[in-house]
Design a protein around this nucleic acid. Structure first.
Length: 369
RNA sequence: GCGGGAGUAGAUCAAUUGGUUAGAUCAACAGAUUGUGAUUCUGUGGGUUGCGGGUUCGAGUCCCGUCUCCUGCC
């Protein structure tokens, strides 16, 4: 079995596990860094290693457009192309169908797009997506799905779930790379019965892991937790569960308490580029003038390269001047901050103190500064 | 000393040859960002138009005086 549950919390559904992939083992719960175009923006693979990043995400849609399947194939796959030897998870492009909705035309076979770069028409469906992910050679491939917006009428959600299930079956049937795992994606919006139905049907098809999609798309926080609660009980206990697109610390803690093992999000790298640091006491705008003379690190007690060596004053200065190093240093910090957060979480679960830890996190991170 | 030019938001500059509530950009401040079309986006505050008079229905704009800076000449 590729996934092994090693500790289970007695009071919640939280668990510590290990996911084995062709490029190494992954300790869960895990936060995965988004590297859409074959790079975690501003970081090098050696940075990621030092920061304790376990999995990097790649994106089928974006890599298909640029540089294209031929280039990746010629390089021998995404690992070799981007020089990351750790596990890679590739998104199917399904989310782009949703986020680039204006340009779409959906058929049973998939989705017709116009490239956002040069307008060229192209097509992405379960067949094309799996073929591309096979070329990419990711350790984990995601099925091609439709991500529903919020809010969404029930009738539309029903049809969409059936479409997602048909696409999931076809995604499973397509050939995959050697050792490549395939994860199904539970959709269903905020409708509990649709979530359950979708989960059960996916389990019947049989996947290596199961994602919960269509959350953190603008719905209230409680709806997000409810979507997780409506899905997890119908997923196998011995398979990894992955909430897609989520990376706010206390939200991840809440989802882990509901049985989730994996997360990914653009938040740490994006807000770093926008001048905001993630800390144990909430987000801090390092760009703010009040740090102009501040000699302290971005976050007190952080072990990252940025915090070990540089002052808030310096990082603020770099950001104010739009220096590349500013984006890099703050990205280093934010990635490390979330990885430390997950390390703490795993220790708390293994040590039997998860509930107390989660409560403390909720208090600390909601009080901004 | 004489001549010329310039003084408008924290900074750099606008304001149709006198016409509504003096704008823009940057900075400041606040907010957003959740399977990246994001070094992005949104919003807020901020002015005794150097100062003092005058002309006019009305002055950043015209006139007088004054202060400061720049520049040229003796």
């Amino acid at each position: 079995m590729a996934f092994e549950v090693r500790f289970e919390d007695s009071r919640t559904r939280a668990r510590v596990g290990r996911l084995t992939t062709p490029h190494g083992a992954v300790e869960t719960p895990v936060f995965m860094d988004v590297g859409t175009l074959g790079t975690v923006k501003a970081l090098e693979p050696r940075d990621l290693e030092e920061l304790g990043t376990q999995v990097v995400l790649g994106n089928t849609y974006h890599l298909l457009l640029r540089p294209g399947a031929e280039v990746i194939a010629a390089a021998g796959g995404l690992h070799r192309f981007m020089r990351w030897d750790g596990p890679i998870l590739t998104d199917s492009g399904g989310f782009q169908v949703f986020s680039l909705a204006r340009m779409r035309q959906i058929t049973e076979e998939g989705c017709r797009f116009n490239s956002h770069i040069d307008g060229h028409e192209f097509f992405l469906g379960p067949k094309e997506s799996m073929a591309m992910q096979r070329v990419l050679g990711s350790d984990i491939a995601m099925v091609f799905d439709e991500c529903l917006p919020y809010p969404c009428a029930r009738e539309r959600a029903e049809k969409s779930v059936e479409q997602t299930l048909r696409w999931a079956r076809r995604s499973k049937e397509e050939p995959h790379a050697e050792g490549q795992q395939v994860f199904g994606i539970v959709q269903g919006g905020i409708h509990d019965d649709l979530r359950r139905h979708c989960a059960e049907e996916l389990v019947a098809i049989g996947f290596d892991g199961y994602a919960i999609g269509g959350v953190s798309v603008g719905e209230p926080e409680e709806f997000m937790y409810r979507a997780v609660e409506a899905s997890v009980p119908f997923l196998p206990k011995d398979s990894p569960r992955y909430v897609m697109g989520l990376g706010v610390p206390h939200q991840m803690a809440e989802c882990v308490a509901r049985g989730v093992d994996m997360f990914d999000c653009v938040i740490p790298t994006r807000i770093a580029r926008h001048g905001t640091a993630i800390t144990r006491h909430g987000n801090v705008a390092i760009k703010a003038a009040k740090w102009t003379f501040d000699p302290g690190p971005v976050e007190e007690g952080c072990d990252c390269y940025c915090c070990r060596n540089f002052s808030r004053s310096y990082v603020r200065h770099l950001l104010a001047c739009d220096e590349i190093l500013g984006l890099r240093l703050l990205t280093i910090h934010n990635v490390r901050a979330l990885n430390r957060f997950m390390e703490e979480m795993r220790s708390a679960i293994a040590g039997g103190t998860f509930s107390e830890w989660k409560e403390q996190i909720r208090k600390e991170t909601t009080n901004n500064e």
